[in-house]
């Protein structure tokens, strides 16, 4: 196989009309047409699909591979939604407290009356 003739292509498959394209692997091929043909057999011999893309590596634009590009150094927990996960429990507790408060208020009012 000659490097000047064969190029790598990234292969994407859509399994169902409602699914997004999913990256499944890479093929080497002499043209986009041949890449589509061999990708179909290399990744979909048995599985059903409704769509297939191949993208030449040369046409892909990647992020800088320097780890600093993806740097996450400081606490980012304030951006996360994890804190909301026990909302239901907190809301229930609050309602119970409010109910107790109302009971006390009502009790005091009845004594004053």
């Amino acid at each position: 196989m000659s490097a000047e003739v064969f190029e790598p292509y990234q292969v994407f498959v859509r399994r169902d009309a409602l699914d997004a394209m999913e990256h499944v692997g890479t093929v080497m091929a002499a043209s986009p047409e041949m890449a589509v043909l061999v990708a179909r057999q290399n990744f979909l011999r048995r599985d059903a699909a409704v769509g297939l893309w191949v993208v030449a590596d040369a046409d892909m634009h990647s992020a800088n591979t320097d780890p600093q590009f993806f740097a996450e150094e400081l606490d980012k927990s304030y951006r996360r939604v994890d804190g909301y996960s026990d909302n239901a429990r907190r809301w229930k507790r609050f309602k119970q407290q409010a109910l107790q408060l109302q009971d006390i208020v009502r009790d005091l009012e009845s004594k004053e009356g």
């Binding site: 093929v27 080497m28 990708a39």
Partner: peptide, 13 residues
Amino acid sequence: APDIEEDVAFSSI
């Protein structure tokens, strides 16, 4: 076959 992808594709055919 001349290349691995074609090997798989042609065997499938």
